[in-house]
Design a protein around this nucleic acid. Sequence first.
RNA 1: GCGGGUGUAGCUUAAUGGUAAAGCUGUAGCCUUCCAAGCUACUGACGAGGGUUCGAUUCCCUUCACCCGCUCCA
Length: 515
Amino acid sequence: METDPQRMERIVSLCKRRGFIYQAGEIYGGLNGVWDFGPLGVELKRNLKDYWWRVMVRERDDVVGMDGSILTHRAVLQASGHEDTFSDPMVDCDVCKRRFRADQLAEPPAFFGLFDIVFLGNNDSHIGQTKRSAGGDSLADAKRKVKIQAAYIQPRETKDLRIDLESGKKGNRTPCCTHCGSDLSESEARPFNLMFHTQIGASSDPTSTAYLRPETAQSIFVQFRNVLDTSRKKLPFGIAQIGKAFRNEINPRNFIFRSREFEQMELEYFCAPEEGLRLLDYWLEERLKFYDNIGISRAKLHVLNVPDADRAFYSKGTYDIEYEFPFGVQELEGVAYRTDYDLTQHQTASGKPLDYFNEETKERFVPHVVEPSAGVDRTLLALICEAYDEEIVTAENGKSETRTVMRFHPRMAPIKVGVFPLLKNKPELVAKAREVHALLKPHMMTFYDEAGAIGRRYRRQDEAGTPFGLTIDFETLGERGDELRDTVTLRYRDSMKQERIAIGDLLTTLLPKVH
RNA sequence: GCGGGUGUAGCUUAAUGGUAAAGCUGUAGCCUUCCAAGCUACUGACGAGGGUUCGAUUCCCUUCACCCGCUCCA
């Protein structure tokens, strides 16, 4: 699809202008890949999370919730495989821009004769050099072997050493890019730690290392036994969680789309092995319904059936739900059939049984799991991009202007209703408007505004995405007859149409629309 | 991480090696009987650090952030 950077820029600008999203630490120059949410942003985000929790947990009999800690036991992320796959030494070629990455490979270094890799340890930073052998490997083979070697040489093993892997002696030759053959003598290999780590307690020896979780899912797997034992659930059932996760992204991009600190909405739905593939399709459909119900157009969603080669090795099926952002089609949510990989890993590593006994069939097995994992911030950005609209309105005097309006689904809109006295300098109107405001406040997010001309106040709320406006006017006071007494103008954001509604009917009319 | 681009008020723009200008927005007041009307006043900026200079927003260096392309995205 065509990208539209200008549109994205205007959206970012509106997000700041109206208080949806600010850059973190902005007055100090900003912090790369980290964002704060303002008054409207936090309401929108809360509405999104609340609705997810409602349909995924509260309205279901087969899902319970939990809230795991962000600080994570190192053993958890060793067992899950994150510690290995999230910390890779990587080498860049300055000429062809290829990058070589150690990647999930733990095979013995059978190919050492084919390459030279020289690491110069320097505290935590490393200088690495690679050279393609004279063996005439195909490019793909050569790259794969470089990865294996890089994975084998862990940073902590290379203190102040120059190792010639072929001879086992210290040495050095001119290293070349395996792709284009360029001299890589000056290229650095840096370890990329995609997980944020910290120390627990005052001492900082290696045993005190803990991580900020890179996904919420692991705490669900780790607590599977406890939830199973205390919730009285039987398979199939799910455990849901919404919470922050952290990844030290190499390259944050596209506003809040790829952030280093972000929030996930994850369900781990446990089932018998033979149900996994069916439930994968079931949850895909459930999740598509969800997006429909928050106002994200089906036409802008793409479902990608992730091909075998691109899936994690333990997954027997994965769908990516993608959205057409102004900067391209990007993933909102992954729905993955993860088999029994996670529970098995934790069962093995912890030595604690994480299996399930089916009383009816007398079978004992490690449950399989289907995981719909959605990004809160990404969905939020999709909501904003979807809602953003500019329309040309022509006034009665023939003057045209652009109306910027955020067409949020009322269920998602940060502010549900604006309450306005038609005129500020008529105390009766102001008093009545405050009464109406007080009536609605306990039930929904409202905004009271009496400043300036009424048209200006409407337009301000259009930019905030407030779906309904209520204006208290002279009819409300009974100056146009008793039939109109205690009725107000209800103005719709999208059409700008107006109708009269009795104050007594407001709650029963508005609440279902925003629920 | 590489290459390119951009940083002046909340936004959009202007000017300048010597007190940084305006429109819109915002705030307060007046006015206003339904779509950013009008009047008055006010708030508010050279991303950060260093260098050159009598003096730097302007010239130079560094750095930070954002955007685009590549790369990455378990």
